[in-house]
Design a protein around this nucleic acid. Structure first.
Length: 434
RNA sequence: GCGGACGUAGCUCAGUUAGGUAGAGCGUCGGGUUGUGGUCCCGAAUGUCGUGGGUUCGAGCCCCAUCGUUCGCCCCA
């Protein structure tokens, strides 16, 4: 039985063309995030299991987290998300950091589950967090940043929708307006999260099952349905409309409109899975009706840093996974075909490997990325090779060229070929970089 | 963890109701004379038909198991 060449289930190999694309994704993310003044941090892929026990639902720990016991008997987890790690880091230096912190990272994360479209066992995720700002300006900046990343990927605003909601508002809605118990609110919250996957009839049946007979008699089900289906904050029932969260959401929407972000919608059914969100949550959806799925999202979690025994730090952030982003860009034809890191391919004409060394070293010394063909095959084959590797230029080196100090530079995309000195060739290739 | 679909050359796939040395396109390699690709022509290599077992005179085609891929459910960053 030979060894299998397949990568581990739900994990990907990145062959050079794949890695090139991934580098493009990350480079674009980094460019935008750093333009907003965010700094990169990193943390270990292994964390103590208890880091995830306090804050997340039990589900993640029991079923979706890779865990093992190390040789010292410690319970270890492979990180399923970055937020606990970054909260830990902030808490550890709570007193000496200068706020606000604008931090980002692109970690690889692991979850143990059956792979499906857009959800693998290992994925990379851009994590952006803003620590230390309570004001709504933080929400505005973070959502604007998320939008700018998609803009940088050349997405049109008609291709995605930003939905926002407030956990505070939803909680107040359930406990104050509907008078539900804490347990009922939690169960209902999970149900609302799945609302768009079911019919209205199914949803109201499941909702009724959560209510007590007397609650059902008070017509809570219809109150619930009427409010949840509202598309505009102004249509909310008066008792809810008076809630402070409504004016905050309105202000946030205004701020975003002012930044030209008009594809933003209030969605009262937007929940997001994690319990640690405390206030505003948002999620970006693919607007394509064929692929109307959630791409990524985030929200405010003011309580996490405080779990480490230090004074709490208000925080808002989001995570953007590479798999869903890739699917989005691919389905909207927004993926470029990045060129090779190798800038020129040296085609050796005849048996000149040794004589050509000086020239090749000169090129490399001028800061060019040069690959030399070592096959000894005829020039036609060497060119084909360069084309397949998506290298932009070929430089021909034969005895005649070495003697004259002039070389043919061929643009492999256009087929255009010119004969120049080495210096001129170097500057032409460098001009092509931008 | 649950359900559906799929698994044939490097890739995409065709293989009729089970029967003869298992096919195509693309790709790869070589050639079309000695310094030039993406077009054209000629030629070549490559598969224990995912794996294991069963039914049968005979299985790529049927049955079971297993591994993997994929879509969905559960769950969700």
């Amino acid at each position: 039985m030979p060894l299998s060449t397949q990568p581990y289930k739900g994990a990907r190999d990145f062959y050079p063309p794949d890695k090139r694309l991934q580098k493009y994704l990350f480079k674009t993310m980094r460019k935008v995030v750093e333009r907003f003044g965010y700094e990169e941090y990193d943390a270990p892929i292994l964390e103590s299991l208890e880091l995830y026990l306090a804050k997340t639902g039990d589900e993640i720990i029991n079923e979706q987290t890779y865990t093992f016991t190390d040789r010292g008997g410690r319970q270890i987890a492979i990180r399923p998300e970055m937020t606990p790690s970054v909260s830990r880091m902030v808490a550890a230096q709570r007193q000496q950091l200068t706020y606000p912190l604008r931090w980002y990272s692109i970690p690889n994360l692991w979850r143990y589950e059956r792979p499906q479209r857009g959800r693998l066992r290992e994925h990379w995720q851009l994590n952006v967090d803003l620590f230390g700002i309570e004001e709504l300006t933080a929400e505005h900046e973070i959502i604007q940043l998320a939008d700018t990343i998609l803009q940088e990927f050349k997405a049109k605003r008609s291709q995605y929708t930003i939905k926002i909601n407030s956990r505070k508002l939803t909680n107040s809605f359930m406990t104050d307006y509907l008078n539900l118990s804490t347990v009922q609110s939690q169960t209902l919250g999970k149900l609302i999260d799945r609302m768009h996957k079911m019919t209205m009839a199914e949803f109201s049946a499941d909702a009724e099952a959560i209510l007590s007979p007397s609650q059902r008699d008070k017509g809570i089900t219809s109150k619930l349905l009427d409010s949840l289906t509202v598309k505009d904050l102004n249509e909310l029932p008066d008792e809810i409309y008076r809630n402070n969260s409504v004016s905050e959401l309105k202000r946030l929407i205004n701020l975003l409109h002012g930044s030209d972000i008009k594809n933003i919608e209030f969605d009262f059914t937007l929940m997001r899975g994690f319990d640690y969100y405390t206030d505003i949550v948002f999620e970006i959806f693919d607007a394509d009706p064929e692929n109307n799925r959630s791409m990524f999202g985030g929200g405010r979690f003011d309580g996490l840093v405080g779990l480490f025994g230090v004074e709490p730090v208000p925080t808002i952030g989001f995570g953007m996974g590479d798999v869903t982003l890739f699917n989005f860009l691919e389905s909207h034809n927004l993926l470029p075909k990045p060129k090779s890191e190798t800038e020129a391919y040296v085609v050796l004409v005849g048996d000149v490997y040794e004589q050509a060394q000086k020239t090749i070293n000169l090129l490399r010394g001028m800061d060019l990325n040069i690959a030399v063909d070592l096959s000894g095959r005829k020039p036609a084959s060497q060119i084909k090779n360069a084309v397949k590797k998506e290298i932009a230029y070929a430089i021909f080196i034969g005895e005649k060229d070495l003697a004259e100090g002039q070389f043919n530079l061929k643009n492999l995309a256009t087929g255009n070929e010119e004969r120049h000195s080495l210096e001129r060739i170097v500057s032409m290739i460098k001009d092509h970089r931008k």
